[in-house]
Design a binder for these strands. Structure first.
Lengths: 336, 336
DNA sequence: TTTAGAATCATTAACGTTAATGTAACTCGT
DNA sequence: ACGAGTTACATTAACGTTAATGATTCTAAA
């Protein structure tokens, strides 16, 4: 924005001066509008290229009323789950000519509100929201501003809002059933992060599986342990109590546990099932069993719905629940 | 941007009408400018608040010439290293009133160029670039547009450009030395991702350490293995050759290896040292020895330099090399 | 030949904001 | 009581783009 060495950025007027056409003709030519001669279009585009013209999106958006920008609001960009989602969305956005502003709510109502206001201020065409636990307070902001938005991976109970989630409950159920079928009768559910919505649903699913198998609730150890220094103690405790199967909230936490288990020399004492089937730059070649939540497809669906809304789709709210699938790779203890 | 239900977004004119002041006065009041009476400021701000006014950043930036937006261009947002950096930068930006547009280069020249053009188009005030391997081709774009930029974590040889990196070579050296001091004489360097700049420097550092210890180069196994299915074979091969110490390119890859080693039942056969000292939402409680690259401080430094440049700092290019530090947690094989 | 209509470009105004400048009233030292 | 300085606001124009509308030339059908 600042011209360090007095270079002024090339604007339409400059191209107009160079070519002899008016600013408007140049604008329309660069947009390939129909009422500009093809030859003129080509000529102007060539000159624009040579002069290093880059459209000023601020001015363009201000005038046209659409910014071709969307905001993605996640909990934290460093959470591998969100990071993967953001990467997917970046890809979709690039395909469709959108720019992404990513913002963090840190699972905090104030922060989420701030993020939404930032998005509004930047006149984004739509918001892809990974709701915090307090989204009910912040959603009205978007409604009031008239911005289309889609919730992903969680939702707040409201029939009017679009959302795309995966079937968390069934995921928990499948994970539990998998461990049970592998012969485990005392099972721990382990989660670190505060993700109320997901952990509750997964817990419910797990309990459905254990109850179905006649396992008493006392033999299901739901453990929320944010302090990493106590993991070793926790493992020992589980072992003492006869726990042999662990359902970790997500793959990352499963890997975390796996390394702890390994360094504690308990490799053979625990079976492990994760969640998400994360496929990042690091494709873990581990034997981790997991629940595939179809993150990429979920992101795609949410994105497409949002783009549709931006384009004017005013059909009733879309509620998409993605099916989940068990992926067995051996860490459950079943020899294949 | 689209008003679904005919709600029109509140603009300065509306507040002007409501309060009886002119648009300009309202604008200046909302900016807390000095030549507006304090009482008027308070009144106007109150009305603006009540009416749900949100400043239109496009118009504001267009007119004022500064967008209070910066672009962060990384390889991939899903890479935990970048994700952590982005998170840090989000924090700094929020403190200082900036909005972040994050873009991906996918370590590709064309993509990086596209990202830069997108950034220019959005009139960002500055660019924080984590350069790809092809940044020499894309940097001129930023120069030409007159946008301040700072390179982080890598740099291209050019005295005129700001950069902030960590001391990769020393990092490699310390990692190697640490393994050597733990008694290992055959060492593998393992890296998955194509990060030429970093892997080269770390390799050099490692070799400096091994040579210093009189270990022949043939006993240093530099292994670049992007295919995860072959890791088990690789581990066996290392074992057969007598490798006992592994230096992994980054913590993520170290964890990846750790799980593989664990599931292969070779927990006691290999010592492990990582790099980065990643501290994400998931604080790995493992015993992994690593090189602390001070990622957060590095991001902070890069950010501050950038903000300085945006503010007009025209002192000679700043070249910051952050010291690295060994963090021993036991995975090197030394009993503590 | 006339003329409706298409093709191509120009003219004008507007998006919402802020910078630059103008002006009226008020303060104050002399 | 006078001008200089200050305070508090208004007026005007501008950022760079695109939408709406107008104008000219050319084509082709009547």
């Amino acid at each position: 924005m600042r011209a360090t060495k007095g270079q002024k950025r090339v604007v339409l007027q400059d191209i107009a001066n160079e070519t002899g056409y008016t600013v408007n003709t140049v604008s329309r030519a660069l947009q390939n509008k129909s009422d500009i001669a093809k030859s003129t279009c080509a000529y102007i585009q060539e000159v624009a290229d040579k002069m290093g013209y880059v459209r000023n999106n601020l001015a363009s958006s201000l005038r046209s009323g659409r910014s071709r920008t969307i905001a993605v609001i996640v909990g934290e960009a460093s959470n591998p789950f969100y990071a993967t989602m953001i990467d997917s969305i970046h890809g979709f956005a690039e395909e469709t000519g959108y720019t992404v502003i990513s913002l963090c709510s840190r699972d905090d109502a104030k922060q989420e509100q701030k993020a939404i206001i930032t998005a509004i201020s930047h006149q984004v065409d739509g918001i892809l929201l990974f709701p915090s636990n307090y989204a009910t307070q912040t959603i009205p902001l978007m409604r009031q501003a008239g911005i289309p938005f889609v919730m992903a991976s969680r939702y707040t109970e409201h029939p009017d809002y679009d959302y795309v989630v995966c079937d968390e409950e069934t995921g928990g159920y499948l994970a539990g059933k998998h461990l049970i079928e592998a012969g485990h009768r005392k099972i721990a559910f382990y989660y670190v992060m505060e993700v109320t919505y997901s952990s509750e649903h997964r817990t419910n699913g797990l309990l459905r599986a254990t109850r179905e198998a006649g396992i008493p609730d006392e033999d299901v150890y739901i453990t929320h342990r944010p302090d990493p220094s106590q993991i070793d103690a926790m493992l020992k405790q589980w072992k003492a109590k006869g726990v042999t199967g662990i359902f970790a909230f997500c793959d990352i936490e499963a890997w975390q546990l796996a390394t702890c288990i390994a360094s504690a020399g308990m490799c053979d004492d625990f079976a492990l099932v994760g969640f998400d089937n994360i496929q990042s730059v690091i494709s873990f070649p581990s034997s981790l069993c997991t629940i595939d939540g179809q993150m990429h497809a979920l992101a795609r669906a949410a994105y497409n719905i949002l783009i549709g809304r931006i384009a004017g789709d005013s059909t009733p709210a879309k509620h998409v629940v993605f099916p989940v699938q068990l992926v067995c790779r051996g860490s459950c203890g079943i020899k294949k």
